[in-house]
């Protein structure tokens, strides 16, 4: 296919041999940064207040690993639920139905306008506000189903609900801005082909909006991962809670905070990889050439280095 032709590396045989610009600033800054780095490492490594064996001991400790697992579970569930809710709220906001528009606007206003921490605690104490959860007909005695709030709404469930609802408020605005970025002509073209507004939304507008939505959503995902640590306030046994409970016993606060930080960094790094591929998928058709995968980028980079070396050899040979 000719797309392949377009991406194939062209021959560099007849390229000009150009002496690259000297950049002394780079060398100076490299030396300065290296010096600072060595000083920092030395300050940490020779610090008597940090017990490195403790970090090693707890890095893969059973309780830490179970905390990591729960943090991941909470993040994935909340983020997925929030994304779906965000699309619903955004489409309500843009529906043109005045009631739905108002509901969506008030929702976003309320959940963005109060601190996440407060929302988490409110959900954690939900049983104090409503001691029973009832499904029935309001203002009558008819009850179909009833349960005790505290058995139904465990700390974990309360935490997931709090994170989801808060995240949905932010994400709905991201989805809305993504939808607004799609050209009006797309809606008209879809309409002229007999597509209903809903079909147009799902098949034409949303997939195009995704290209704009994914990068800020990646940001939100990273926030979400770190915000799960706030659930320690309502005693959800996620990563940070586990670490604080361990350090309450062994008084190794700093070491466990380092363990926790390393784990959060690791989780964030791993979850950035799917974002790259999502961007690539939803970016299809947006440029003349398909965006490269990470591997393709790496290959092209090493290819360029090889060409430079070949040039050098040629010059030396002459």
């Amino acid at each position: 296919m000719s797309t392949k032709v377009a991406t194939a590396a062209p021959s560099r045989e007849f390229d000009n041999v150009v002496h690259p610009l000297r950049r002394p600033g780079r060398w100076v800054s490299t030396v300065v940064i290296l010096f600072l780095l060595v000083a920092f490492v030395q300050a940490i490594a020779t610090n008597k207040n940090i017990d490195f064996p403790t970090i090693g001991e707890f890095m893969f400790h059973e309780r830490i690993l179970s905390g990591v697992r729960l943090t991941l579970i909470i993040t994935v569930i909340s983020m997925a639920a929030a994304a779906i809710l965000a699309v619903i709220i955004a489409s309500m906001r843009m529906s043109g139905n005045p009631v739905l528009v108002a509901v969506a606007a008030i929702y976003v206003w309320a959940f963005r306008g109060t601190p996440l921490l407060v929302q988490i605690v409110i959900w954690g104490y939900f049983g104090l506000i409503f001691d029973k959860i009832t499904v029935g007909i309001p203002f009558t005695d008819i009850v179909f189903w009833q349960a005790d709030t505290n058995t139904l709404l465990t700390a974990l469930v309360a935490g997931i609900i709090a994170l989801t609802l808060n995240e949905a408020a932010y994400s709905s605005e991201i989805v809305r801005s993504g939808m607004l970025s799609v050209d009006e002509g797309q809606r008209e073209a879809a309409a002229s082909l007999g597509m209903s507004p809903r079909y147009c939304f799902m098949r034409i507008l949303l997939p195009q909006a995704m290209r704009v939505i994914i990068p800020p959503m990646g940001n939100q995902l990273i926030s979400m991962i770190k915000n799960t640590s706030l659930l320690s306030l309502i005693a959800v046994l996620e990563l940070y809670t586990q670490a604080t409970q361990i350090s309450a016993q062994n008084l190794r606060q700093v070491e466990l905070l380092i363990v926790v930080s390393i784990w959060y960094l690791a989780i964030v790094s791993v979850l950035s990889v799917p974002q790259h591929y999502l961007e690539r998928y939803f970016g299809r058709g947006s440029t003349k050439n398909q965006p490269q995968t990470l591997m393709e980028k790496a290959r092209e980079y090493t290819g360029a280095i090889q060409v430079q070396r070949a040039h050098k050899r040629k010059r030396k040979g002459n």
Partner: peptide, 26 residues
């Protein structure tokens, strides 16, 4: 209803000045 209008439009093809092809589709 918009759905009924959509059904009517199936009988009426339209070509736009700015093409308006769906960029995410071949």
């Amino acid at each position: 209803h918009p759905r009924a209008v959509a059904k009517q439009r199936r009988k009426i093809g339209m070509v736009f000045q700015r093409f308006n092809l769906f960029p995410h589709k071949t």
